[in-house]
Design a protein around this nucleic acid. Structure first.
Lengths: 132, 132
DNA sequence: TATTGTTATACTCTATAACTATA
DNA sequence: TATAGTTATAGAGTATAACAATA
């Protein structure tokens, strides 16, 4: 089961490589796409990675000009992470192919199965550290 | 969907770290557990990684004394990869906790759901490069 | 000439831990 | 003192490409 997960993910990773993105980088962009303005700590929690590592990923993403750190007006220590216009464009560029790949990978399943799969994964996702 | 996959996988990865294993290393051991004696090329195909990279992972695993390369008697170029006794022991040591984690992660699902999920994943797995 | 495996390089990610600054 | 973010280090994985030995 885990091996299948890994293979599916490698497939996604290989596709992202063609866009000059790594999986963690894509994950950050996609997360910001739905939850812009979160802090680096929150981002670290989502990715299940330490804040130190998020820092490095953000360094690379901001060097590419896709994200920017804006100081939190209410907390001098915190940053709020935002997509730049270029980042939004990049995400819009990658997403269609990404969706096409997911669609292709789930082709052996019926539409109903995919729906079930999706709702299962959402249930599993919610179960991951709900009370940190 | 892919983000959930990633989060589930990170969870597995964090658990493996406690055993001094990385996900690719575990993947190799588990693959050998069911298909011992395959070549490095075959292994590379399973992991969706280049032969050069498999070489490095095997270097580390054999340095730990968990796998060994045996020259293929019929093809002077190829190696057949085998688990050592220590490797088999390591796998037996990690597997219970691994299964417990998978069980815990799928707890929000019913037994029937898990069965469905498993059969879906098997279908997806079979669909990944069936004709290389 | 093609294939199996090895080696080399550069980059990214991760674990770990010490550090700065704000609260 | 606790928290948000940064920096430093070491190890591992991956992409890419050149290389040796065998088929």
């Amino acid at each position: 089961m885990v091996r299948t997960f890994y293979r599916l993910q490698r497939q996604v990773e290989l596709s992202l490589t063609g866009h000059g993105l790594t999986l963690p980088q894509f994950d950050v962009l996609a997360t910001l796409g739905s939850d812009e303005g979160i802090t680096q700590q929150e981002l670290a929690g989502r990715l299940l990675v330490t804040k130190g590592n998020v820092c490095g990923v953000l360094d690379r993403l901001s060097m590419m000009g896709w994200v920017e750190r804006r100081p939190d007006p209410d907390d001098g220590r915190a940053n709020r992470i935002h997509l730049t216009a270029a980042g939004r464009k990049k995400l819009a560029e990658v997403m269609p192919e990404h969706h096409a790949l997911v669609l292709k990978m789930t082709l052996p399943l019926s539409d109903a199965d995919v729906k079930v799969l999706r709702s299962m994964l959402e249930a599993l996702d919610r179960a991951i550290e709900p009370e940190p």
